[in-house]
């Protein structure tokens, strides 16, 4: 049993971030990569909330509030871009979306 300390929260946040990072590196489906990006964002907010709680302030919570708002806007725009891309290229696999590389 791991006690609820600041270190435990940061380690959990780092592990979640690393899992999201792993997903971004290995997946081929753009939508799943995008989900893993969201996972990394949420992992970072967990660290902010933990710091805020252990310091006895609310500023970290307010930051997380803004991060969630920006993330919602980001998801809407990102998914619109993916849909536009799919309309043009008929695929969402990252290995086929390499026009900038060639």
């Amino acid at each position: 049993m791991i006690p609820l300390t600041l270190n435990a929260c940061i380690v959990l946040s780092a592990v979640l971030f690393a899992i999201g990072f792993l997903g971004v590196l290995i997946r081929r489906n753009t939508l799943v990569i995008y989900m893993c990006l969201e996972l990394m964002l949420v992992a970072s907010t967990l660290a902010l909330v933990a710091f805020s709680r252990f310091n006895g302030t609310l500023d970290g919570n307010v930051f997380v509030f803004f991060i969630l708002t920006v993330a919602a806007a980001e998801v809407a725009v990102g998914l619109a871009i993916i849909v536009a891309l799919f309309r043009r290229r008929q695929t969402i696999e990252v290995e086929k979306l390499n026009a900038l590389k060639d």
Partner: peptide, 30 residues
């Protein structure tokens, strides 16, 4: 394999850094 290595290094780095919080990192929830 490559992704797990990279992610593991990332997590290890953050966990080692969190050790530098000292005793403040291991107090129970106030």
């Amino acid at each position: 394999a490559a992704g797990a290595l990279a992610a593991g290094l990332l997590a290890t780095g953050v966990i080692l850094l969190s050790g530098s919080l000292g005793p403040a990192g291991s107090v129970p929830l106030p």
